[in-house]
Write a protein that binds this DNA or RNA. Sequence first.
DNA 1: ATATTTAAAGCTATAAAAGCAATAAATGCT
DNA 2: AGCATTTATTGCTTTTATAGCTTTAAATAT
Lengths: 242, 242
Amino acid sequence: MLPAQPNQSLIEGIRCLQALSLSEKPLRSIEVSRLLKVESTKAHRLLKTLAHLGLVHQGGNRKFQVGPGLPVLVAQSLYSAPLWRSMVDPLQDLQRQIPSCKVEVGMCWEGVVSCFYCSEPGMPASWAMGRVDMQMATRSAIGLALLSCCSQEKVEETFIGRPIPGFSRGLPSLVKELRTIRSQGYALIPDGQSGERFSLAVPQEDKLYALALSGDLSKEDIPELVQLLQHTLELLYSAHNN
Amino acid sequence: MLPAQPNQSLIEGIRCLQALSLSEKPLRSIEVSRLLKVESTKAHRLLKTLAHLGLVHQGGNRKFQVGPGLPVLVAQSLYSAPLWRSMVDPLQDLQRQIPSCKVEVGMCWEGVVSCFYCSEPGMPASWAMGRVDMQMATRSAIGLALLSCCSQEKVEETFIGRPIPGFSRGLPSLVKELRTIRSQGYALIPDGQSGERFSLAVPQEDKLYALALSGDLSKEDIPELVQLLQHTLELLYSAHNN
DNA sequence: ATATTTAAAGCTATAAAAGCAATAAATGCT
DNA sequence: AGCATTTATTGCTTTTATAGCTTTAAATAT
């Protein structure tokens, strides 16, 4: 994955972006430099470069925050390509087959899941695509399904040294859970407080995203639902890879 | 804006991302290198670095496409900060005052607008935030309002050499329109085919985003609506800058 | 108004990309 | 299926861009 000659500057630049996106408020360049433990001139120049590109916005008070470039890049990738739009039809079909469930498609990065498709029962199709919600990966079926596709090292690297939401007993219990998920090919977790609701997610072949169903699922239906999800994923994959 | 020592690698890396986000389908590294007119080893190494970071995804066929990092970064910046969530209340208030109109907040980058808030009449609050839709800036009131805040050079740089959606007579007519918008402080354009519907947008002080109202607007109400939008923008600004 | 902190630029050593050449791996073609 | 062409990937050397120190300027706080 990592090339023989990775571009260090690019890596550091993205770290700046990441820091800004996680921050509660806009940051001064020196604050970023301290957060990332890099020399202040360097952070400053990276941030200014990102600001020039428009990925970062520098407000009147000179503080930096995430800028217009990021949402536009995401929107472009979702809309300008037939790639993603072609996913809507198969997903709406799925929604019709299981009308009482929520249908979601999401990606996982650095322990965080973002769903770009989310249709709740009764929601018009045009509202379902083009969303960006956020959940902690370890509390989401989509996140667990995708994490189960990562190597154990990658998972450890991601979660080491910080509390793992939903796994208060730490990394080993997460790793164990992921092993189970990997072997069965799907993640099933309770959804919300009530014992009736569950979330069921299956990862896509490429491991880029996962598809989830949430609602009143009964244990005996699981194998059938997993099959349905896998079938839908195949449709999605061929829809945007031909 | 541009620092004395901009980081060239970072700029090139982002150009790769941009190329992928605009592409109809996943690209081979050599295709990216040809699109951007850079040496192929360089493009390859940048893409591999981005793939390692997770901003780009390399599928089984080795082709590159936008990866999970981007949507997660956007979602994080929208949700993990009180910054953006604090915008919901003022916007819902606005929606209540003008119940028949659509309310949108969007950013503009490289001639493209992405709205991250979009509430249509009757839409629940929780569905309005966390959207990423896409429109061409020159066809959108939000885009025109934000472009009017850019220098003429910046605008020319963005649109030179390509057709400008909605301005078939070219750059000069866009520049003229932007001058008008800048002087009056708002953009007003017809919305859809019917002559009844309009879109009205006002840029935020920092020029980071603009707020728009779309629907059945009558000419004589414009000044009042502009005031209302400006007032809401002040609330938004203070909501996330204190 | 003054002191302190942060931002930004200049400059040089150095480390990191660029780009060529070589090899390996895919892909396409017959 | 086997050969030819294209693409991906690495190694190596040169060159160039970045790191980071120092200095100056601009904000911000006191």
